[in-house]
Simulated scan of single mutants.
Amino acid sequence: MQLNELLEENSTKTISERTNIAEENIDHLMNNDFGAIKRVKTMGFISILEREYKIDLSKLREDAAAYYDQKGDDESVTLGLPIVEEKKGRSKWLWIVVPVLLGYASWYFFTQFDQSQLKSLLPFNEAKSVESTTSDDTANINEELSIKNVITADENDTEIPNNDTNSSENY
């Protein structure tokens, strides 16, 4: 059985649906128009038709092979090598370098920074500053409460508070 006999029994549309070969490619095979299809596809289409319809298309295969040999077009198939993708993300070196840099920056800050500014920033120096401010405050309070200051303040007061109801101060 040849391709022509197959086409008499079945339409190109039914052959196309069963084999998944485009109708125009079936027409090219029927008309022996091998120039419109590449060699690999032509041989593949012939193999599919032979398998699906259990027919012998060796004559068509020989005609196609003779056409491509005469044409002298050696088509080669190139296979690409798989592309190795690089890892995306942070490397191990980042996790090592960042802490080392932070440690060095901290060491430099504490050893090379101006000592007067550093002493004012450190929290354990607060106790000394609290002691100095409390001693100054207690000295001022002691001076204000001394008997001399109280007596002189009473002598300087000339105003005597009234017990009037209009007075704003209540004793």
Rank of each mutant, 00 (worst) to 15 (best):
P123L: 07
S135T: 05
S146Q: 07
L101I: 15
T42L: 12
V40W: 00
D27I: 05
L145T: 02
P161G: 05
F34K: 01
Q112P: 00
E50Q: 15
F110H: 09
S116A: 13
I160G: 02
K128L: 00
T42E: 10
A153T: 14
S16L: 06
I147K: 06
R51H: 09
N166P: 00
D164I: 03
T158H: 09
R90V: 15
V84D: 05
I83H: 04
K148V: 06
E52I: 09
K87V: 03
L94G: 09
Q112G: 10
M43S: 13
L145I: 04
Y53P: 04
L60H: 00
N162C: 12
D63M: 08
R51I: 06
G72K: 10
N4F: 07
E62N: 13
I83D: 08
K119Q: 14
A105M: 10
E8G: 04
D74V: 12
E50M: 15
T138I: 06
G103A: 14
N20F: 08
E24S: 05
M43R: 08
S129D: 01
I26W: 02
E23H: 02
S129N: 03
P82H: 07
N32I: 01
S16G: 01
N163K: 05
N32Q: 08
Q115W: 07
E126G: 03
T14M: 01
I26E: 01
S58H: 12
L122N: 09
A153L: 09
E85N: 13
A65K: 14
K59L: 14
Y108S: 07
S47I: 10
L79S: 06
T133W: 02
S91I: 11
V130S: 03
E62Q: 13
S146G: 05
E17T: 04
E62V: 08
G103M: 14
D56N: 15
L29T: 00
G103F: 14
A65M: 14
D33S: 09
P123Y: 09
D69F: 12
